[in-house]
Design a protein around this nucleic acid. Structure first.
Lengths: 146, 146
DNA sequence: TTAGTTAATGCAATTTATTTGCATTTAGAG
DNA sequence: CTCTAAATGCAAATAAATTGCATTAACTAA
């Protein structure tokens, strides 16, 4: 019990610190959105967050997430679904998404070191690559048996 | 002059063949959408195509593009812009997109051979990875000087 | 601790992207 | 050339995201 409480306090403390570090005011909405993203390992849509929180307006969630993305607190991805998904980035990773059911799995492998360097070298317009989106698509076990 | 005409005829012939191979009826709209995508090297949005063609309804363009994607004739990407972009895929490649102005450049490098294999091996849910989206983001020369 | 300023929020309305329904037209098989 | 099913255009609907503005809450400094 104590352990769980301590852990919870630690997380809350971290969340506050994250907001402070990003020069964002500490508000109830920001805390709960960030806490939700941290405790959920999967990417969440605005709708997902709205349904789980209930107290915050959908517009506020949009605004908070856009700020978080600008401040590099959360990572935004699209999975060819027509809407944005958001994820807390404690470690860089990618996903495989099922074309059938949309289920997803984390992929821990990332691009080789020299990959980005090579791209920067070969580019005429770009000197610096700051970021990349890499998503894999496939069919999961369940869907391939249907 | 003759050369240009011959080339044009050849392209048109190819376009017709592409549609036939995909079991799609040859219609004026499909021909012009596909021709536009082939002659343009850059990914185009529905709006882009609509403005350039003028004769086809926007809804028809949506429907045509969705069919083309299903038939693997064109490739759909999002560049974190909130709308879909479409590109004729004569060769597999990726892009760098400027965070400032949205300008983009093709990237010819692709994932190493063993990369996909490794992912399939490590995955618990997925046996087969059929496809991937890889986009790089950065700041182009023009925008980094502003 | 409190007053004051600025930013955050909620609500309504709008914009933008995409999809759907249905009547009309057209491509292509026979 | 005719017939049928699919393609198209138009209107309307749905979905995702943004904007304007009045109200509220968070931080700063006294």
């Amino acid at each position: 019990m104590i352990k769980k409480q301590e852990r919870a306090q630690k997380i809350v403390k971290n969340i506050r610190q994250i907001l402070k570090d990003a020069d964002l005011k500490i508000t109830k909405n920001r805390l709960s959105v960030l806490e939700l993203l941290i405790s959920n390992s999967k990417p969440l849509s605005v709708e997902d967050i709205f349904k789980k929180l209930k107290k915050a307006d959908q517009v506020t969630i949009y605004r908070i997430l856009n700020q978080f993305v600008l401040k590099d607190i959360v990572y935004q991805t699209d999975f060819r679904s027509g809407k944005a998904y958001f994820e807390f980035q404690d470690h860089h990773h990618h996903h495989i998404i099922c074309k059938g059911c949309g289920d997803l799995e984390e992929v821990e492998i990332c691009l080789p070191e020299n990959f980005i360097k090579k791209i920067q070298k070969n580019s005429t317009k770009f000197k610096k690559v700051s970021d990349h989106a890499l998503e894999f698509f496939g069919t999961c076990g369940k869907c391939s048996n249907i």
